[in-house]
């Protein structure tokens, strides 16, 4: 299909671009390793004081950290760099070239840049997730696999739409990089299950910045504690956001072509 061919060619370009600076690859491994170690150490510290945190067992928390890194890697692999590039292109006017191409502009903008070294996050995160489950000899049934897959897909869609909506604001305000800082600072909170936070923060992490759906819900699925409603909610939110972000994008594009100099 056309979309996949386009993604493949952009991915290839990403590999070529990144491998031009191969020191970055080792730096990336080092950075991810360090972050993972810190996160796991924090879990160890917590569980040296208590047996369970908000009802979560140690291996469930390490699984959550694995998922946290997988999702982080996914965002940094393509969503964040592409949309950041898009916002730069609004400032410089280079977006014009994208808009003269006979392909969907939202698609082109969203896959414009692959930072393939960020796959290190995804791979190491998956390793931590796998290890947590194996070490604790967790039986992973097909239902759990299905739930996890559905949850992570919904989470991915929600995070992407969230980024797209923020980035689309650049059509009106031009410089909106600051908004994205909000995302990053809130995302860090996703290293812990959001259930442990006070109520107001839980709401923020669910509805304002969708960390809950990106990390906690998939982790709940893995540990078999996910209730059906949360999954349905995630799917509903993903659909709604996909439709809304598309509509909003089109509005932004119409504004751009109506006003830009």
């Amino acid at each position: 299909m056309k979309i996949f061919e386009l993604m493949a060619v952009f991915f290839r370009v990403g590999v070529l671009g990144e491998t031009a600076y191969r020191a970055n690859f080792y730096i990336q491994i080092f950075e991810t390793g360090l972050n993972l170690a810190t996160a796991l150490a924090a879990v160890a510290v917590v569980f040296s004081q208590t047996d369970s945190l908000g009802g979560w067992q140690p291996f469930e928390l390490t699984a959550l950290i694995g998922i946290y890194f997988m999702v982080l890697g996914g965002i940094n692999l393509v969503v964040a760099p592409s949309l950041q590039r898009f916002m730069e292109h609004i400032v410089t006017g280079n977006l014009d070239y994208t808009l003269t191409k006979p392909a969907d502009a939202q698609l082109l903008v969203s896959i414009a840049e692959f930072r393939v070294f960020r796959l290190v996050d995804v791979v190491l995160g998956a390793g931590v997730l796998g290890t947590s489950l194996t070490v604790h000899a967790v039986e992973v049934g097909w239902l759990v696999v299905a739930q996890f897959t559905a949850a992570i897909l919904a989470g991915a869609v929600i995070v992407y739409c969230f980024w797209l909506i923020l980035a689309t604001m650049a059509f009106w305000f031009v410089r909106v990089e600051n908004i994205l800082q909000i995302f990053w600072s809130m995302y860090t909170a996703g290293r812990w299950p959001i259930g442990i936070y006070p109520k107001w923060l839980r709401w923020m992490l669910t509805l304002v910045v969708p960390v809950a759906f990106a990390v906690t819900v998939p982790a709940e699925a893995v540990s078999g504690r996910l209730d059906g409603d949360a999954l349905v909610g995630a799917a509903a939110l993903a659909t709604a956001l996909a439709l809304f972000s598309r509509w909003f994008w089109r509005k932004g594009l119409a504004h751009y072509s109506g006003a830009s100099a």
Binding site: V9, R12, V13, L16, K101, P102, A103
Partner: peptide, 11 residues
């Protein structure tokens, strides 16, 4: 490689 990208975009 930039050219190749245009090949795909322009089908």
């Amino acid at each position: 490689d930039s050219f190749d990208r245009n090949r795909v975009i322009y089908r």
